[in-house]
């Protein structure tokens, strides 16, 4: 069964890792929701940067926007949540010092998509994402974690793998590009029509 939604989390240094993941995935055929930890900055600039880096269009999410194929970026200072059919935003308290928070995206997507979810945790410098990955795996979704030895910061990948182990769950571990390729093989992406 092809996952109906991919959620991806990384910290700001993870832009390159995300680009590697997208290179493996190719043209997305499913919605790809992305939380990238960041400092507050002018709107739009991060989306443009990621689009240039990865060669696919990246758009910041507006509240209630439907889940459509393509890359959807959590806007600055909002949590991004994935419902069954639409993205929702919240301005609730930060979670592990972060808004947007990877856990908030992963947990909401796990609850709305269950088995039809693939969660990808890339390089990140805090524990944010570890609880989310466990929730995804616990509800039958697929968990992918960047190989800590390839990560710029291994804190999140290592924390996630440890938390999964404690919960008796597992994840597939690989480089960002490799994880993208696995998901392409599952039908989540196709060959780019034109290479950037």
């Amino acid at each position: 069964m092809t996952p109906g939604l991919i959620v991806v989390g990384a910290s700001l240094g993870g832009a390159e890792a995300f680009a590697g993941f997208m290179a493996g995935l190719g043209e997305p055929r499913v919605p790809v929701a992305l939380v990238l930890h960041r400092n507050r900055q002018p709107r739009g600039s991060l989306a443009d940067y990621l689009a240039r880096l990865s060669g696919v269009p990246v758009a910041e999410v507006d509240d209630s926007q439907p889940l459509t194929p393509g890359v959807h970026l959590a806007p600055a200072d909002y949590h991004l949540l994935a419902g069954e059919r639409a993205f929702r935003l919240s301005v609730d308290e930060k979670v592990i010092h972060a808004r947007p928070s990877i856990d908030v995206l992963f947990e909401s997507a796990a609850e709305s998509h269950r088995k039809q979810l693939a969660a990808v945790l890339l390089t990140a410098a805090s524990r944010d994402g570890a609880a989310g990955v466990v929730r995804v795996a616990g509800l039958g979704g697929r968990a992918y974690v960047q190989d800590p030895s390839t990560a710029e910061s291994s804190v999140a990948p290592a924390a996630a793998l440890a938390a999964l182990g404690e919960a008796g769950r597992s994840a597939r571990v690989g480089s960002p590009r490799r994880i993208g390729e696995w998901l392409r093989a599952e039908g989540c992406g196709t060959e780019r029509r034109e290479e950037p």
């Binding site: 949590h79 949540l81 994935a82 419902g83 929702r88 919240s90 609730d92 308290e93 908030v104 947990e107 909401s108 609850e111 709305s112």
Partner: peptide, 12 residues
């Protein structure tokens, strides 16, 4: 209320 954010608030 939107269930996803409501659920988090109830947990809080």
């Amino acid at each position: 209320y939107a269930p996803a954010s409501l659920r988090r608030r109830v947990r809080a």
